[in-house]
Amino acid sequence: MRAQARIVAVADPVRGTRLAAMRGEPPLLPRRTFPSDSEGEVQLHLVGGAAGPLGGDDLRIEIEVGPDARLCVRSVAASLALPGPAGGQSRLHITARVAAGGRLRWLPEPLIGAAGCDHRTVTSIALAEGATLLWREELVCGRYAEPVGDVRIETTLRYGGRTLLRNDLAVGPRASGWSGPAVLDGARAVGSLLVVDPAWSDATSQEPTRCVWMAGPDDGSGRPDSAGGPTGVRRAAPEHSTAAVLPLAGGPAMLVNAVGADPRAVRARLDRLSVRRYVPERTARFRAIPIARVSPAASSATAGDAE
């Protein structure tokens, strides 16, 4: 199956943002949805109009966010990569462009790699200088008690023409050592949150304040951390180190990485880290991004720890 979706968001003097284009075809169907507090942001959900991605599928999503427009893209459910009837690889190409002053939040549900699948997601994000981004990517290695097929996720982030991040992740039978202690250590879920905020360019330090977070022994419960110093550095048993905030070189960006036994644990870690005070207070613009609403559970989980 070949399918393409195209979404173009532009600034609107009355509503803040409007959709200049929203096209799709099964299984990529964008639907406008309405959050309670929109802040001039347009939100839409991708609705899966067919099973998949199945082996042989070639899916493309193109997103454009114009100057000062705000767009949030979510999906209604996890997508499940399955082997195709005639074999072959399934491919999903996501291309996103955000203009200066624009903001894109890409917060879909996880991708699950089923046994025998052969899937490749290629993401290419081009931000103009002054654009803001929140980009979540989550992968689950197999359904319940199922070995994962081959999944490869390739991500390129450019900011002002410079490549800030080139990050690929491969799991499955073809990826040597992927479940070993260097890569995932048997974790069945892995996720990342890519955050770009031009306000960090104005900060005195090139790299935002570093923060390492180590989960407590019963992490995944979603409860707020109780211990924490003013620097945001946590001390806990090292055997539970499963997530970190990684400020990127050469631009106002950071990657939050997390692994976990299941997607819920990974989401909890990403959510919790994304609302940490890992940036200096003076970069108030970052705090204005409603990052706490990454997922509905986040706001309650982190409310006690916000200030």
Partner: peptide, 12 residues
């Protein structure tokens, strides 16, 4: 190709 636990582990 990235190894998430090498990156997380290095920060720790």
């Amino acid at each position: 190709d990235s190894a998430p636990l090498l990156e997380i582990g290095a920060e720790v």
